[in-house]
Design a protein around this nucleic acid. Structure first.
Lengths: 228, 228
DNA sequence: CGAAGGATTGAAAAGGGTCAACAATGGTGG
DNA sequence: CCACCATTGTTGACCCTTTTCAATCCTTCG
């Protein structure tokens, strides 16, 4: 019964995101006969902190989440944004290596990590999916290291726009949930540099604004050529 | 017989590295009854290329390896150095996302990825280890994103020295296998900036040189305070 | 021993950061 | 419903860290 309602959420999710791929979280939880609870977090609320025990694995239902690390003086590096359908907080050890916060009011589904690990010892599909999800995160991290280590400001912003376009564009318009500071901390820049890069792209006709966070891409070809 | 010789290599490895932890590669290959072949690569020789099929998983026996991505104009980001005992080239998909090259003359052990994946479907320990090794790579990538996105030049070099000290220091001296350009492409800097940072640390008494690539750390406390 | 690659150092330039002022936006309460 | 205020975003001017370009030194290895 509860599992059924969980499945309903999975399905509605698939519709919301318009993602035709299989939902690994639902797949894994389903195979494992695990109950996924739902929970909500308010804007800027912490979901888990760095070095805290990793008791749960999460999936975004509605909203958006940022995962980040801090230096002792407060400098922040956001390693990923998690959007509806995305799984986050999955670690192979028992401790979180990142802090996760809701960017806007956010609903998540969650299952106990212990349960997943237990299931992985009996069901090879679960084990395979845990590995695949971590490998997907690693692939993103490798791409992002190239961006952070070697791309210019305008290239970073172009890459960001194409990534977000790919992940959350519906009907040609992009509704960014995060502020300029979040984007800057994701791209290893300052918020002023992000703003200037966006202004430059706007003046070049590459994009249009409908408010600061509603962006329409007018020239994806140009963006790809900047992105390299 | 052949498996036995493989185990001998595993054991000798454990001695060479002085690593007291279990050898995941040997563990995995052993559990799976897989034969690990040995192979040698010359200085700067490519082991596998980005987008090539991922047929093998590797472990460094002697030498050192760099894994990197390139931009179209040749800018390079090294995401990791692999030293004796390290496993590399493990991906969950069928294609390599990075290029791997021998930094110096290097010996590796290798097993077929297909074999490992096959073994993972019957042996939960193998499956668990594949996941754990990928998760270890991800943890390193997360730390490195923080470095690339938010640390200053001197902080990056301090972090690098402490990482290498931890990984290859024997009897207090560090024999770096890689050149300044490799270090720079790992840290997201230019080789000149790396050189200047090392000179500064030398002039501050934090380290001594016995040749450009033989470094002795004189003040780890200071390095840690720079590292943040 | 000599050549060639690797490393250091210096000077100048540039890209992005910092600081500051101002504009736009949106949420709240009267 | 509208006005106000706090938050968020933009733009400008200046500065600083790192890059770029260049010269020189070092070392290692054929």
């Amino acid at each position: 019964m509860l599992t059924q309602s969980t499945d309903a959420i999975v399905n509605s999710q698939a519709v919301i995101c318009g993602v035709p791929t299989t939902d690994q979280f639902g797949l894994v939880a389903g195979h494992a006969n695990l109950v996924a609870s739902e929970f909500c977090y308010g804007r800027d609320e912490e979901i888990y902190g760095e070095d805290e025990p990793a008791d749960y694995v999460y999936q975004v239902v509605r909203g958006a989440v940022r995962s980040y690390k801090l230096l002792s003086d407060g400098r922040r590096q956001i390693s990923a944004f998690h959007l509806p359908g995305d799984v986050f907080g999955l670690v192979s050890g028992s401790v979180h290596r990142l802090t996760a916060e809701a960017i806007v009011d956010t609903a998540v589904r969650l299952v106990k990590r212990r349960g997943l690990e237990q299931a992985a010892t009996t069901d090879v599909n679960v084990a395979r999916n845990l590995w695949t999800m971590t490998a997907t995160d690693l692939r993103h991290a490798e791409d992002h290291m190239l961006l952070l280590g070697r791309k210019t400001a305008i290239e970073r912003v172009a890459t960001f726009l194409l990534e977000m376009d790919h992940r959350l564009s519906v009907t040609g318009t992009m509704a960014l949930p995060m502020c300029r500071r979040d984007i800057a901390d994701y791209l290893g820049l300052t918020l002023e540099t992000v703003s200037r890069a966006l202004s430059q792209l706007h003046s070049e006709g590459v994009l249009d604004f409908c408010g600061a966070r509603q962006i329409i891409l007018r020239n994806r070809r140009k963006l790809h050529s900047i992105d390299m």
